[in-house]
Nucleic acid binder design. Structure first.
Lengths: 205, 205, 205, 205
DNA sequence: CATGAATGAGAATTCATTCAT
DNA sequence: CATGAATGAATTCTCATTCAT
């Protein structure tokens, strides 16, 4: 079972991370034990500590990996020549699809990190904030170009947009919103319609 | 120091609850100890168990008290004869003012309950959902009356609206959004402008 | 079993310290478990942590208590009007009697502290050194008065004197030297005879 | 890197032992990990188990090698035709020089073995005792020849002599005694002067 | 020979909860 | 009512040792 193959070591590490995702999602970071992760991964207890310095580092790794992908996706989107509405749609799509494909991972990131004001959220504030700032930048540019109106500050708009998405995910997590396959795509449209278009009927003519 | 005065017993209980708010806000529910609450309240920690069956019950009490007040406020607002935009503004105002006056309590409720998918959030799902449903009801009525368009489902709109508010509070909690006195009032307007009016410039004419 | 009587709390603490002496002496500090101390004291595991912050603190307490008594005894002796030989005899007597009455405690102090160059010995260096310095002071005064010759430095003489005593205790600890009651008193004489008088026959006339 | 050359195997073993000396001296036997030894030696830590059955065996080997050399040196000295004072001087010289040339090794031997009453000291009691006995034999012979007086038993004198030396080494280890090159030679004289000549001024005439 | 991944038995420490006073 | 001593289950993290490659 031991190996000198570095590729296999990488896979073992991955195996533990994947197990942690499911355990954290199911029981919560504070409530689960490291042995739960090891059991789920089918490895010995101590191996978790062979690959990670602590239980915290497992969650840190999970968050940083995924959040990095998110930031890259946002930056990528921002670079394209698109109306702000389309950029925001792309971002919402990316997050919704992230949840669709890896609901447990997104659940862990939201519940244990981005909303955990006293622990991991505080520790990763810079990374989290970077996402808000990128979104804010898209809004600011759209306000300058005239696509968006100036009714709210870009920073505020970014929070409302991101908050709406996170809450939708929370709705799925809690089974408060329907989470059938078609609901995911609908959600993308709904988010953009709500935040960009507004709930109100537009004045006709 | 001992007393048979029931009024004083009520005050002692309050004293412990208030202390818990600050300790939970500062350290987080899982990270603090019951003795931290007792220390903050200036009582022996055995006394916490006189008034509450467990540490959990302290948080449950805090949440249920406050959430009940919120639900009452929403119901009260809903009963009035107002445009949906004004109803939503009133709800946003109420939550923002709640944070303004008791930031620690709102922080605890959001961080430890409404986003805690594996523990208290799950336990209090019915109460939390009630808020979503009430907001959803306001949206549905507005859609029927023609004030709001039908682009999104009421349930979804409720999530977007509530999510935007919670995220703004999160911004204040994390010091990511400016939290000066005037920002609180501005936030109320911004939330309604964003969710009801939308970020986009309306077609002129 | 619980009590508000502060005197009883002091006794409980003492009970744990006494148990620790025997457990440390029997198994060694590193080899014993905190539960061994608790078992020996007949108390619950956690109570050790009620009275001491850590296992280390138990040993620290034991050492500081006893070493303080030793330093006081040396200072007391030094204050008297006596030949240096008598002062050194008094100090040797005190240490030998300490061992006679509490062999386990002295064993722990020597084995786990005064000779533990990488842990407790380093941590308590100042206190240990104080003893050497006091003894060195006695030697220096005797050299000035002419009672002792100048063949060696006071600091060195202090080390030789103290080292001889500690080694004798080590001999008893390891059962390499006879430790019958009369041997203890004989040892006091032997130490002074050796260090002050020297092993060599003095030139006659 | 692999080899069948037995000479290289011996060197590898030596490399590990030398590394262990430094690690044990720096961190202490109980506090260091086998991987620390391997790191210091620049080998994989599985290799330690190729050459030694256990961590204990590494220290055992270190002690037995060195203590054997010491016993040989004492026996060698004893065989010569010399006054007891010169024999003791030779022994003190040998130990002091051992420390001068390999302070870490001597530190490990004293701290982890000769004073470790519950572990290695107990295990190697026979070897340690042999040294005491050899020194005691020298004293006994000197008493019979009239060179030494009969004030103390040989066994006791041996302990005082050896204890003085060990304490001087301890002084260097703890940086309580000056350890400049000239201090080492001076120490040899001081030890013999103190133990053989005594601290007291001899009665003139 | 050499490597370092894998194992799992410990051990220290924490802390919610109980309860005698 | 109030106190805080007492309990002990639970959990993290360590590290000696094994062993497949």
């Amino acid at each position: 079972m031991a190996t000198r193959n570095p590729q296999q070591a990488v896979e073992r590490r991955r195996q533990i991370l994947d197990a942690a995702v499911h355990v954290f999602a199911r029981q919560g970071f504070h409530t689960c034990r490291v042995s739960d992760i090891a059991d789920e991964a089918g490895v010995a207890y101590g191996l978790v500590y062979h690959y990670f310095r602590s239980k915290d580092e497992v969650l840190d790794t999970l968050f940083l990996e995924r959040w990095g992908v998110l930031l890259d996706a946002i930056r990528e989107t921002d670079r394209e020549q698109l109306p702000a509405r389309e950029k925001l749609r792309a971002i919402a799509s990316f997050i919704v699809d992230s949840y669709r494909h890896e609901p447990d991972l997104m659940k862990v990131i939201i519940v244990e990190v981005t909303r955990a004001a006293n622990s991991f959220g505080r520790a990763h504030l810079a990374e989290i904030r970077e996402a808000y700032d990128l979104i804010g930048g898209i809004v600011a540019a759209a306000q300058r170009s005239g696509e968006f109106r100036d009714a709210v500050t870009p920073a505020f708009a970014a929070m409302a947009f991101y908050g709406a998405i996170e809450q939708v995910l929370t709705g799925w997590i809690f089974d408060v919103l329907p989470g059938a396959p078609e609901d995911f795509d609908q959600a993308k449209t709904f988010i953009v319609e709500t935040i960009c278009g507004g709930l109100e009927r537009r004045a006709v003519r």
